[in-house]
């Protein structure tokens, strides 16, 4: 069947087999190998991407179901050579070792911060429960997510301020 989706800002139209998983389509057809597969039961979260702005385990969705959707992968986060604040925070806080869980972890962390811009440790840990990491013991990942929250906050507040000022004029 024929599907069209926008992935990291580029539109793609392809024939896919009905059984093709979204993650297979991304990796094998579109060359989006930054998104990886760590399990076959939907438990590891390594394949996490954003579909229409929300994190989804791309091994748990068919390519066909993503028809008409807008998808962001780890490869589409950096803008004009500048890392997304969560990517930067992962680097700064040594939140990765082998890096295999990292794309999924970062995509999930962004989603988590969208829901709760100032999460406490417990919230971060529970928010990342569906993403397994075997290397880091999670401590630096939690630190990175909280650090990213702080980095995102001034920007967000500045934005809000601008809006208020603009609205006042």
């Amino acid at each position: 069947m024929r599907v069209t989706m926008v992935v990291d800002g580029v539109s793609y139209t392809d024939e896919v087999e009905p059984r093709t998983l979204l993650v297979q389509h991304l990796r094998e057809k579109l060359g989006k190998t930054g998104t990886v597969v760590g399990c076959d039961t939907g438990n590891c979260g390594a394949c996490t991407v954003h579909v229409d702005g929300h994190s989804v385990k791309s091994c748990s969705m068919l390519a066909a179901q993503a028809d008409g959707c807008e998808i962001t992968t780890i490869e589409g986060l950096a803008r004009d050579g500048k890392l997304h604040p969560v990517q930067q925070a992962f680097h700064d806080n040594h939140a990765l070792q082998c890096g295999f869980c990292t794309p999924g972890m970062i995509m999930q962390a962004i989603d988590l911060l969208a829901d709760d811009p100032d999460p406490d440790e417990r919230t971060v840990r529970h928010g990342l429960e569906g993403n397994l990491c075997r290397c880091t013991g999670y401590q630096n990942i939690v630190r990175a997510v909280q650090d990213a929250a702080h980095r995102l906050k001034p920007a967000a507040e500045a934005d809000r301020e601008r809006e208020t000022v603009a609205g006042g004029e």
Partner: peptide, 19 residues
């Protein structure tokens, strides 16, 4: 030192064998 390795790994510019 922040790791040199990270630049590729956090952007998905990776060379896993399966890639």
């Amino acid at each position: 030192r922040r790791r040199k390795e990270d630049a590729r790994l956090i952007t998905g510019r990776t060379r896993w064998t399966d890639n």
